[in-house]
Design a protein around this nucleic acid. Structure first.
Length: 314
DNA sequence: AATTCGCCCTGTCGGC
DNA sequence: TGCCGACAGGGCGAAT
């Protein structure tokens, strides 16, 4: 699931298409397109120049000379940039049979739903097996006024923590803190992976009610969000299943995750078996020891921690 | 008003 | 071996 670090990595990886002109465009699955029909979009994009590639939350924004394309990758969306004359990339095709592999030919990939052919012979391809992605056509450059963009909260990496806590933090909300992190109108770009990682990094149980967070915990939480997102970008995103960089290669962050995707495995910090529960309708992995819940069980855990340690003589 | 739920979709995996 | 249900989940609109 491409979240802020994955989309940012893709944005950076697509730098080479800036300034290129779109010679032609193809669209395969009309329901992924908003703001235009597939046929009209093909016509509208012909001859357009890609001026800039931006990111807002999990949205990738392609500013053209006259209009704007906004892309959301949903859960399994991939945006790749294939060099001139490149064949279909076998790395994207999981169903290649032995014979096809031997012959070096593959069926046309049924999951590639959009292709932009550029004036240098390269192409940008949008592939999305689960089709939760969206391609939004916006006339002109006022894409920030689009309802889907307008409702987004602040960019986590830009925000100043103290003013944000005063102005934007729903201190009386009774949602679990994980639900808040997933809310794109609170912070734009945090998804299931980085929400779990941020909660682990700040030592908060995912079900903790927002209203119960102490000021110091709020600061810890926001600091952790920034930290885990920056780490995700540094390692070029988390490849769990479908995410790829624009060159088709994997991100390096998965093996560096502390909790996401590690349910039942030992905590990398304390060795306790990581729990998997459902919070806000999402699979959620956390460490009961490092992220103790409020109330009943907390007391028992504190008691254990507070036990005087036997001095070691070695 | 705030929060939760159901739905969209398809590849993968475990169980029988 | 093959069938089938469960699961993965971002975001939107409906329900509570």
């Amino acid at each position: 699931m491409p979240e802020l670090p994955e989309v940012e990595t893709i944005r950076r990886g697509l730098k080479a298409v800036q300034g290129r002109r779109i010679e032609s465009a193809e669209f395969g699955l009309p329901r992924l397109i908003l703001g235009s029909t597939a046929g009209e979009l093909t016509r509208k994009l012909q001859g357009r120049r890609i001026e800039a590639i931006l990111r807002r939350g999990k949205y990738l924004v392609l500013e053209l000379d006259t209009d704007t394309l906004v892309v959301h990758l949903g859960m399994t969306g991939q945006l790749t940039h294939a060099p001139a004359n490149a064949k279909e990339d076998v790395r994207f095709i999981r169903t290649v049979t032995g014979l096809q592999k031997a012959l070096g030919v593959h069926p046309v990939d049924k999951h590639t739903h959009a292709v932009l052919h550029l004036d240098d012979g390269s192409r940008v391809q949008f592939r999305d097996p689960r089709t939760f992605g969206k391609i939004i056509f916006i006339k002109g450059h006022a894409w920030e006024k689009n309802p889907r963009i307008q409702i987004l909260g602040e960019e986590p990496l830009d925000l100043k923590i103290e003013p944000f806590l005063k102005k934007n933090f729903p201190a009386r909300s009774r949602r679990p803190v994980k639900a808040l992190l997933l809310d794109q109108s609170f912070l734009a770009g945090v998804g299931n992976i980085y929400a779990d990682e941020a909660l682990f990094a700040s030592g908060l149980h995912p079900k903790t009610l927002v209203t119960l967070l102490q000021p110091a915990e709020r600061i810890r939480l926001l600091t952790a969000v920034k930290t885990v997102l920056r780490k995700g970008i540094r390692y070029q995103g988390t490849t769990f299943s479908d995410y790829r960089k624009p060159d088709g290669s994997n991100g390096d962050n998965f093996e560096r995750l502390m909790v996401y995707g590690r349910g039942g495995k030992p905590c990398r910090s304390c060795g306790t078996t990581l729990q998997k529960i459902i919070v806000a309708q999402r699979g959620t992995v956390f460490c009961l020891q490092c992220q103790p819940p409020r109330g009943g069980k907390k007391r028992a855990i504190l008691k254990t921690v507070d036990k005087p340690r036997r001095p070691s003589h070695n």
